[in-house]
Amino acid sequence: MEIAPPVLIKGPGFDLREIRSVPEAIEYLEGWPANARSPFWYLASNALHGAVDGSMQVEHAREAFEAFCKGAGVLLV
């Protein structure tokens, strides 16, 4: 499931990452520290898993993931 347009996020240092699919976004979220998971993390996770099972449109899951990234300060704008 492709995410269009891709979500660009900042990593450590000058590292940039382009999230291009729902599975990539889920993998990124799963790597987020458990003690730093905000309500936006849970919303994004639920939305992305909903996109996988067909109960959520991919566009809406992308928006939720982007909102999480923005709130976490990792969204490249």
Rank of each mutant, 00 (worst) to 15 (best):
I3N: 05
P39F: 09
L16P: 00
P12W: 08
A36I: 00
A44D: 01
A25V: 03
A25Y: 00
P23H: 03
L8M: 13
Q57S: 11
G54C: 06
E18G: 02
F68P: 03
S21C: 05
E18F: 07
E24I: 07
S38D: 06
W32H: 14
P6V: 06
R20S: 10
M56Q: 10
L29I: 07
F68D: 00
D53I: 10
S45L: 08
E66F: 02
S38L: 02
W41E: 01
D53T: 13
E24G: 09
L16N: 10
G50D: 01
S45Q: 11
S21K: 08
V52P: 04
R62F: 02
A25E: 00
E2C: 00
H49E: 12
N46L: 08
L8W: 12
Q57C: 00
M56H: 04
H49R: 15
D15W: 11
R17V: 10
V74K: 08
P12F: 14
E59Q: 13
R20F: 03
A64M: 14
F14A: 13
L16C: 06
W32S: 07
R62S: 08
A72S: 12
A4I: 13
S38T: 15
A44R: 03
E66A: 14
G54H: 03
A64G: 02
A64R: 10
V22C: 10
G11S: 09
E24H: 11
P23L: 00
I19N: 03
Q57E: 14
V74Q: 07
L48C: 07
N35E: 14
I9P: 01
R62G: 07
A4P: 00
F40D: 09
Y28D: 06
V52E: 11
G13Y: 10
Y42S: 11
R37M: 05
A51R: 04
W32G: 03
S55T: 15
G71L: 03
Y42K: 05
S45T: 01
E63F: 09
I3S: 02
D15Y: 09
F68T: 04
L43G: 06
E2T: 09
L43E: 12
F68R: 06
G11W: 05
A34R: 10
P39M: 08
A64E: 11
K70G: 02
I9W: 02
K10H: 15
V22G: 08
A36Q: 15
A4M: 05
A61Y: 00
P6Q: 06
V58K: 13
C69N: 04
V77Y: 10
P39V: 12
G54F: 01
M1W: 06
I9C: 07
I9F: 05
K70C: 04
K70V: 05
G13L: 11
S38Q: 03
P39Q: 12
W32P: 07
S45R: 11
V74R: 06
S38W: 01
G71M: 07
A67P: 00
E24P: 09
L29S: 03
